[in-house]
Design a protein around this nucleic acid. Sequence first.
DNA 1: TTGAAAGCGCTAACAG
DNA 2: CTGTTAGCGCTTTCAA
Lengths: 365, 365
Amino acid sequence: MTQPLPLPPADPASPARQARRGHGRVTLKEVALAAGVTPITVSRFLREPAVVAAETAQRIRAALAQTGYVPNKQAGLLASGVSNVVAVLLPNLANSIFAETAQGLSDGLQAAGFELLIASTGYSLAREEHQLRALLGWHPAALVVTGRRHSPGALQLLAHAQACGTPVIEIWDHHPPEPGQRRASFTQIGFNHDEVGRAMAEHLLRAGHRVLAYVDSGIAEDYRAHERGMAFAAAAQAAGASVTVVRSPSGDAFDAGRQVLGDLVRAGPPAITAAAFANDHIACGAMLEAVRRKVDVPGRLALLGFGDFAISRQLTPSMSSVQLPRHAIGTETARSLLDALKHGVPAVPACLPWALVVRGSTAGR
Amino acid sequence: MTQPLPLPPADPASPARQARRGHGRVTLKEVALAAGVTPITVSRFLREPAVVAAETAQRIRAALAQTGYVPNKQAGLLASGVSNVVAVLLPNLANSIFAETAQGLSDGLQAAGFELLIASTGYSLAREEHQLRALLGWHPAALVVTGRRHSPGALQLLAHAQACGTPVIEIWDHHPPEPGQRRASFTQIGFNHDEVGRAMAEHLLRAGHRVLAYVDSGIAEDYRAHERGMAFAAAAQAAGASVTVVRSPSGDAFDAGRQVLGDLVRAGPPAITAAAFANDHIACGAMLEAVRRKVDVPGRLALLGFGDFAISRQLTPSMSSVQLPRHAIGTETARSLLDALKHGVPAVPACLPWALVVRGSTAGR
DNA sequence: TTGAAAGCGCTAACAG
DNA sequence: CTGTTAGCGCTTTCAA
């Protein structure tokens, strides 16, 4: 504080300094003092600049710049009773699949003045409930969670929030309610994983495969991957094909895929001729190992991924996969949420399109 | 509200209902009413359960469960004047490199009761300043930003915050202050990108290469990648080698790498015999294209990546790269921050280790 | 061990 | 167009 560093918005040596609280932050009152008005006028100017007189506005503007005022959101939200926070629970942020959804949400919500409070659950329902409890303390304007599976406690919290008028959206899923199970229903924005699993099976069946495998996610609570696997197996078996479900080992997904490939080619007789995977990383690992072992893909073994990650089209042969509305889930959720929040209506659910992209790894017959 | 759904923590049909505000949230006062004590006692119990009488505690516990109380953080933080929020600004979340740092931060801070407010800047200093302004409104306990380059406005905000006692940490960088440039100094936790650039050059020079290329990031404001490139070029030229710096095209990084490979092999005479890249994705793209074109790697062209992404060790030949303390930057920052916050001392800077991993793509000579 | 009073910083409502 | 009054939900003194 000895040398006068250029700190225009709040020079520590300026007269505004001594007016600060213990925490050192400039408050509305101090700005008002500097501008020669009352706090409420400054508050008004901040929210609706047009409503104050031109010359008053000028003085306030100067005071604002001079003091380096930053509004305290805690206080603002508390006083107004409205929240501009949207709480988001994702299984994972490191996984680019969800990061893109977060980006989509952010794109759609930030422009409308909302802030995102993002927490990751690590694919654990227990952690989801824990995080949910923490997030709820911010009294968010809306709640976005991943999937339709939640712990009983989380379900109660979500139902309670929804009953109090807070929109709750389940993303990355779109599923009709189970007949027997009575549960609160939330708005779902995503796609049906059963359908995807079936489509994956049908694609392989259509190519003439009769001995199939599904390589499931190594993550115990990746329910959506398990669901696709169940639907895949059911569809294949209904068509008279056989299906082996293997769970991929945990750890690096590429390595897991490499490891699984050994089991796949060793299996039988009858030999497995096509495998579907819980995600592209595992599938790509298997593909790389197949290339290394000179296992013919798709001749000896066809491979079908899920997620259509950037690397998948780059390998040789290129990986057939399922293209997902990763970003759209975010933007659509934002759109739906803004609508719901603005007009006080419930958020509308949406079933978003996906596409099975056929490439070299399952080509021809 | 017609059928009595099981909502234990706050049955909308319970007596607690009518006690709710317009926003429908249970407040401390209502819990107190249900427990037959005053709000302050409940508040105390929540923070220091041991300090209230055993039977009072019992009643409060029951009231808490019955009402489904969720503390309002806005109010709590406002009243106590302390913030448990750490604001984090990252260039990008979709990029797993930063997602891991965020995870590290989260791992270290959540246990200590802090919450992360994460925003992404999209590698734009302008957006950084904007986001910073928004984040500052939460009056965070600490500020974590990426890199040492900031807009003048952001610099003022950061300096101001630091002057007010809020720790400010710059991550992913560790650089001595420029002699001529007078600027506020913040705690840096990361590594020196000049050193990495030099090490990359030295590795290739040591392998006998004399005609080099640096494939820079296509992102204009990825200053750290540019820095590595400058240091790379300077070191190579100092050793008498020639260096061509090319900027990778924007868009999919793998495709960019593929595209760049054409230019690299076409260049000369003298022909470029080794290329370093701003990141592994571009490098892998180049590698895949080299394999496709049957360009011998490393015989005709050695490739050296940066970041050591999961895919890099999987390709054939495997990619030499620079292993980064992605997660450690997060955990170390958390550690440093907790220390600073707890003892009121400034956060200590740290220079974290990285390692050049030699694999097939730059092997032998 | 519990309570009463006061206030965090800001914003609704109303009044002028 | 501006100010007054009251209070958001909670926590900090202090006192009982």
